[in-house]
Amino acid sequence: MPKIGIMSFAHMHAYSYGACLNALPEAEFVAVWDDKPRRGRAAARQFGATFVSKLEKFLDLDLDGVIICSENVKHREMTTLAAQAGKWVLCEKPLATNVADAHAMIKACEKAKVGLGTAFPCRFAAPLRVARDRIVSGEFGAVYAAACTNNGSNPGGWFAEDMLSGGGATMDHTVHVVDVLRWITGKEFRKVYCEAGNVLHRDTLETDDVGLLQLEMEGGAQVSHVASWSRPKSFPTWGDVTIEFICEKGVLNVDAFNQRVDVYSDAAMKAEWVSWGGNPDLGLVRDFVRAIMEKRPPCATGLDGLRATEVTVAAYESLKSGNVVKIRA
């Protein structure tokens, strides 16, 4: 049974991954390391794992894999150290905030002969899986266009600090949809144009809170994408991932997290959308554990993380230059 550790609870998804590890019979959630000992100790206690305050001691543990949920800019260092210690790595998205870091992470894992996964749980969301199956089946013919959104609420904290996050809503909320479209169409992104704004949270954030991307894929499909932290505190859920596919033989709409029951509770004094859908994080973590057991690459690899990062980086280049930017691939 693979023994897994979590490195850093800076990203809130770590709490979900911790719960998933505990829910999986085929994995053992052994240890936590965090550069903020208080946070790490509390999380370890919550999940029944051991907190190890010294990084070297954590890496000396008999762990098969680690899940890295640090601030974005620390992914490279943690991944490299974990790989050198022979651990398989599942890294929170975005894999990196620049292309060089992503390449270095892939290289380090290759050299150490450990698998590297990027946390793209959308690949395990049933509505997106069904959308992929239907498009891949050819039932809708060619994909001509897609209009996408990944809206969320203001995460605050380090997300809004450029030095730790590498960027704002565009950095945070571009890669999921980029990965999903690559995964569904099997095609790469070729060009991007980006506008971004910071009107919504400019009192509290130094980064962009809305990014509007216009992209072109191999074969010419035209894509628009909204990466935002635009959902107000009063909104009934955290946000969304939606895609409208315009295809040769029809239109397919997917609203990945809209399997919901609407709850009106006087205790909350705001409407709540409670999901009845599956938990994509569970699929993601299970895949990582099984990849370790089967010695195969995780579903979304480091290369997938790199490709998504290339798009985000090009979007920020476009924002700076005001022009369409070609994406290297």
């Binding site: 001509y144 266009a145 144009y193 072109e216 035209q222 628009s224 315009i246």
Partner: peptide, 18 residues
């Protein structure tokens, strides 16, 4: 703007404007 403006195999237009 990206605009589809297709005529074959069918008339289809889809326009995305920022």
């Amino acid at each position: 703007c990206q605009a589809l403006r297709r005529s074959e195999p069918e008339k289809l237009d889809y326009s995305q404007v920022t």
